[in-house]
Every structure is written in C-alpha cells, then in structure tokens.
Simulated scan of single mutants.
Amino acid sequence: MDFIEGLPNSNTRNSILVVVDHLTKYGHFLALMHPCTAKDVAFKYLNQVYKLYDMPDSIISDWDQIFAIQLTPYEALYGQPPPIHMPYLAGVSPAAVVDRSLQSREATRKLLMFCLKRAQGRMKHFTDKHRSERSFQEVIRKVGAVAYTLQFPPHSHIHPTFHVSQLKKHVKNHLPVVDAHGASPKEPIRIIDRRMVKKGSQAVTEVLVKWANSFPEDATWEPLTAFQTKFPHFQP
C-alpha cells in the first residue's frame, strides 16, 4: 500500500491510494484529497477493498506520516488488531462439498505462493545483475529510496518526480553533435549483437548498433541489409 501525491486536481482529488495484492498482483487505485488522515484512508480502504476481500494477513507500507499513530487502517477504524487467518484443515467441515471446496482453495493458495516465491527469486537474480548505486545532485528533493523531484520551469505541465530508472547522469561537455537543423547525425561505431527475426515468411538478420555521440542504452536494432547499404564502408 502506498500513496501517489502531488498530482493535478481532478474532481477535488489530487492523490491516489494504491493497494496491490502481493500474491495475485491485482491492484486498486483510490482517489484521495491531500492532506488526509489515517481515518480517511481507513474508510476508503473499508469501502473499496475490505468489502471485496476481507482483511489481509499483513499490510506492507512505507508508514506515511498520516500513520504517525503506528496503526493499520483496520486498527484505526475498529480499535483492535485484525483477526488472524487460519489455514483450513481437511475434514473440519462436516459438509463434503464445503470440505472439498476449502481443501481445493488451500491447495491453490499453496501453489500460488510457491510460484510467486520462485518468480520473485528469478526476477531478483536477473535484476541484481543490472543494479547499481546511484545518486543525483541539483534536485529539489529525494522521494523515498528510488525517486527524485527535479526543478522544472513554473509553466511546465510535466510531473517533476521521476523513478531513478528514468534519469541519466549528467556529464559536462558531453553533448551530442548536431547539424544546422538541430538533428544529430547517426554514425555507427560498433555492432553489439546479432539476431534472427521473422518478417512475413522470411528470416531477417538484425544487428544491434552502438551509435556515436549517444548513450549505450540508445543502441538500436537495424536490418543488416539496410544497414550495409546505408553504411557500405563500415567495418564492424
């Protein structure tokens, strides 16, 4: 559970309460008016989420300042901790249909948890290969651990807060060269990779090209035949 704040007003609302189910990734996006209280959030959660799914086993949040009382929305609303979910034990219900249904639900839940943890481990393994510590200067403020608010002109209509993955390090005197029309000429400097793709009924070779005066992430896939025609003297 988290908040998106500082949005332009829409029907007197300028914030969004985001609630995502950790298991199924199903999300709810609830409009709020900032500033709001823990009681406001609890009522919104009760009316939009609790009525559909009951109380979750746990709530993961960054403990926004509105939760200074260190209580979950359930505790703030009802004055007591939420009930603990107990897994169903086979044979507890005397009704055979109910017993089979609940056993099936528990089996499905265990399978989902297994697949979720396996997927999380796989995603973390591959993502960690591309992660690095980053910090930025000349920004207004840091929002959480992975976002920054930049200083834009007053008339700008772009939201100034960006995830760290959307930002690039500024390197002085490293601006791309442009022609008289403001366009940057593209000159290849290296072939990074090759691949075969299907276009229509034919297999076509494409090459991943690193361009001069550009960042590594700006490399593009180009058809090999068209690339050789445009740059006949290029030697990879």
Rank of each mutant, 00 (worst) to 15 (best):
D2S: 00
F3M: 09
I4T: 00
I4F: 07
E5K: 06
G6C: 09
S10Q: 11
R13I: 03
S15K: 12
L17R: 03
V20H: 14
H22Y: 03
H22M: 02
L23Y: 11
T24H: 09
Y26M: 13
Y26H: 15
Y26N: 15
F29S: 07
A31P: 04
H34K: 10
T37M: 03
K39S: 09
V41S: 01
A42T: 03
L46M: 07
N47T: 09
Q48N: 10
V49A: 06
K51Q: 13
Y53P: 06
D54M: 11
D54E: 10
M55C: 10
M55Q: 13
I59E: 01
I60S: 00
S61K: 02
D62S: 01
Q65Y: 02
Q65S: 04
Q65N: 04
I66C: 05
L71F: 07
P73M: 11
Y74W: 10
L77P: 03
L77D: 00
P81E: 03
P81C: 04
P81L: 03
P82V: 09
P83V: 05
P83W: 02
I84L: 05
I84M: 08
P87S: 10
L89Q: 12
L89K: 14
A90P: 09
P94E: 07
P94T: 02
A95S: 03
D99W: 13
D99V: 15
R100E: 07
S101N: 05
E106Q: 13
E106L: 09
A107Q: 06
A107W: 01
R109F: 04
M113K: 07
M113E: 08
M113L: 13
F114K: 11
A119G: 06
R122I: 05
T127N: 05
K129M: 09
E133R: 11
E133Q: 09
S135D: 08
S135A: 04
F136C: 04
Q137N: 05
Q137E: 07
I140C: 07
K142C: 09
A145Y: 06
A145R: 06
V146H: 14
Y148H: 11
T149P: 05
Q151P: 06
F152N: 00
P154K: 03
P154M: 08
H155A: 02
S156P: 00
S156Q: 00
H157G: 00
H159P: 00
H159Y: 02
T161C: 07
F162S: 01
F162Y: 07
S165M: 15
Q166C: 08
L167C: 13
K169A: 13
H170D: 05
H170L: 05
H170Q: 05
V171Q: 12
K172V: 10
N173K: 01
N173L: 03
H174C: 08
A180V: 15
H181E: 12
H181F: 10
S184G: 11
S184D: 02
P188H: 12
D193H: 09
D193C: 04
S201R: 12
Q202N: 12
Q202G: 14
Q202M: 14
V204M: 13
V204Q: 12
V207T: 13
L208R: 02
K210M: 04
S214D: 07
E217W: 09
D218M: 08
D218E: 11
T220W: 08
W221S: 00
P223C: 14
P223T: 14
P223F: 14
Q228C: 15
P232L: 04
P232I: 09
P232N: 11
H233Q: 10
F234L: 15
